[in-house]
């Protein structure tokens, strides 16, 4: 349960890990746009190669990447099959009742599956190589201009980082309350649906009461430690844009140009 929720940040020492979270965020965004340029075999292979280069540079084991892909494999398969039957063009490979599988449909389905998979691989790579707090910092910094139009960017980022910080604490708390109520004869795992829903109340109420108490304590502690909003606040972590980051963005621009050139 733990690993699922906290994201799967794997601290390693690699080129991708040392990138500024901002360049990674911009990079992922650019990549997602670029992906839609790919429309033939060559361009799709280019996308896949780019992904592999990223994985190699991150020193990440393929099994970790696979873990990220596993959860959506079914969706990829489903879209593949749907496309296989719906898309047309080219010569018919075989027919079954109303369904015709054509060469055009087959290539189309492969391209779409590749498109989804490379997007997932790249975002997985982002969360594997960037700690949640770095992502929050990066987002805050990128969204900074929005402060000018009175968007609560700082508050949002702080909220995110505190939520991330408290996830393990709340999970622990949940487990404890489940056990305490189970010891009092409550049962969350068997019985009718209605019974199970009823059994949730003794779990949810204490959880909320506890979370509110924590929030109250935390607000008090933050105030005692001098927190009074964004005004005059400094930051320990400074995001540093280096040649590595410029390199990544250049690589993406190059990829985009290649794709424009090589696409049909």
């Amino acid at each position: 349960m733990f690993n699922l929720v906290i994201g799967q940040y794997v601290p390693l020492d690699s080129y991708v890990h040392h990138l500024d979270p901002r360049s990674k965020l911009i990079g992922v965004f650019l990549f997602v746009v670029i992906v839609f340029l790919a429309n033939n075999w060559l361009t799709n292979i280019l996308m896949i190669l780019f992904c592999f280069a990223g994985i190699l540079l991150s020193k990440m084991q393929l099994s970790y990447i696979y873990r990220g892909l596993r959860s959506i494999l079914l969706i990829v398969l489903l879209t593949f099959v749907l496309n296989l039957f719906l898309a047309s063009g080219g010569t018919t490979l075989f027919s079954w009742g109303w369904f015709h599988v054509t060469t055009g449909g087959l290539t189309q389905s492969v391209f779409i599956a590749v498109r989804i998979m490379v997007i997932i691989v790249v975002t997985t790579l982002l969360t594997l190589t960037t700690s949640p707090i770095e992502i929050t910092d990066g987002m805050e910094s990128l969204l900074n201009p929005l402060k000018k139009i009175k968007m609560p960017v700082h508050e949002f980022a702080l909220m995110m980082s505190i939520s991330l910080r408290f996830i393990p604490t709340l999970l622990e708390e949940t487990e404890k309350i489940i056990k305490a109520q189970a010891a009092r004869g409550s049962d969350f795992t068997t019985g009718s649906l209605r019974g199970r829903i009823k059994a949730i109340v003794p779990l949810l109420v204490p959880l909320f009461v506890g979370a509110f108490k924590r929030a109250e304590d935390l607000a008090m502690a933050m105030e005692a430690r001098g927190y009074h909003g964004d005004d005059g606040r400094t930051k320990l972590h400074q995001l540093k844009w280096s040649w590595r980051d410029s390199l990544l963005i250049s690589a993406l621009v190059l990829l985009a140009l290649l794709l424009i050139f090589a696409r049909n």
């Binding site: 707090i133 505190i162 991330l164 910080r165 924590r214 304590d217 935390l218 502690a221």
Partner: peptide, 9 residues
């Protein structure tokens, strides 16, 4: 409460 005053990640 040690948990409820720990703000940082």
């Amino acid at each position: 409460n040690p948990d409820n005053q720990f703000v940082g990640a």
